[in-house]
Amino acid sequence: MSVTFHADDYGITEQQAADILKLSQVCGGQGALSSVSIFANSPAFEAAAEMARPYVESGKLAMALHLNLVEGRPCAPVAEVPLLVNQRGTFANDFVGLLKLSMGAQRWAFRQQLQRECVAQIQRYLAAFPQMKRTMRVDSHQHVHAVPAVFDALSQAVAELGVTVTYLRCPIEPLAPHRAAGSNMPPVNLAKDALITWLWRKNRGKMPAACEVPLFCGVVLSGAMDTVDWPLLDAFESLAADRGKNVQVLFHPVSVPIEQCLDPENAPFAAACASEARNREAERLRYLAETR
């Protein structure tokens, strides 16, 4: 069994993308990182994709599409996704907002617009990485694909484009390794993990047949991933071995100046993007490479 250290939110800016790649020994840097997922709706997408391309094409760096329905501008024309955006033309809903819309009076129009945006983001991603059409890896910003309507829209978009998905993050995090390692688990993160686990029950039978589903770590210590250490990772590896799986450990490294975030006026997301905790997570990735 193996542990993959993964960075979400790759490509917010060119500088952030370059700094994330420096956290990967397989990309010539110093750090444990070996996998990233990229924002297709970022203004820096093309530049970030170009920086990663040599390592992706050589097979050294795993790349995934980081489906984003909550921050920044859509890839689809704004007029085609009015339920997803605000008057500024940027995404208007967080995880809970998407969940509410999926159950509201406009749910059928909402699902159609979700599918349209999923198609647009996949198309932009494939324009940069056409080889991924047969080996698509997908996860999502804020794990919104745990919302059944989003999962269904993504599945329909994949089918519409004839894409083969070989990895789709299952964002359910087991608590046993944290208990074994004595993790300090913030109650808000435990609630988030419980909600995602509850929602995911409706998605379990819909996973693509050939999809890799590693054991996942990254929600319970969200905002405190700089505390991850080898006793915790050993506990995850032990559980993964029992289940015949690998492990993916999710980080959000490298802080971005708030005015350079995907939507500086979206205060909660911009604050998270600019948080100094992201730089501490970057340091942790260097530490993990040095200590094992």
Rank of each mutant, 00 (worst) to 15 (best):
E117R: 09
I196C: 01
M225L: 09
A159P: 02
N184T: 07
H66Q: 04
G223S: 14
V254M: 14
L61S: 10
P187Q: 07
Q121D: 11
P54R: 06
V163T: 10
R284A: 13
A48L: 09
R124S: 11
G162W: 07
P174H: 11
Q87W: 04
L21M: 05
L65F: 03
C217G: 08
P214I: 06
N203K: 00
L221E: 15
A209L: 11
K245F: 00
A7E: 09
M132W: 03
V220T: 15
R292S: 02
S140Y: 04
V256Y: 03
L168Y: 11
G182S: 13
D193W: 08
V158Q: 09
I172Y: 00
R169W: 00
R169T: 03
L21I: 00
P77V: 07
P253R: 11
A44P: 00
L84C: 03
F251M: 13
V188L: 12
P82W: 02
I12T: 00
T197S: 12
P231G: 04
V96L: 14
S24W: 02
T166K: 13
Y10G: 10
M51H: 02
P174K: 15
V70Q: 04
G218Y: 02
V163N: 09
H178W: 09
W198D: 12
A92G: 08
A48R: 04
V138S: 10
A76Q: 07
R137C: 14
G59M: 01
F110S: 06
G104R: 12
L195Q: 11
A64G: 11
L232P: 03
E259M: 04
I258P: 04
R134A: 13
W230E: 08
I12E: 00
V158T: 12
P54A: 07
K22V: 10
A79W: 00
L69N: 05
N279R: 04
D226Q: 15
F236P: 08
I38K: 10
T227E: 15
T291Y: 12
R137G: 05
P174N: 15
A282V: 00
F236S: 01
R134N: 14
W108P: 02
L23G: 13
T135Y: 08
L69P: 03
V36E: 12
P148M: 04
K245T: 10
P177L: 13
V3G: 05
R286P: 01
W198P: 00
R107K: 15
A282I: 05
G72R: 01
P253K: 13
A18S: 09
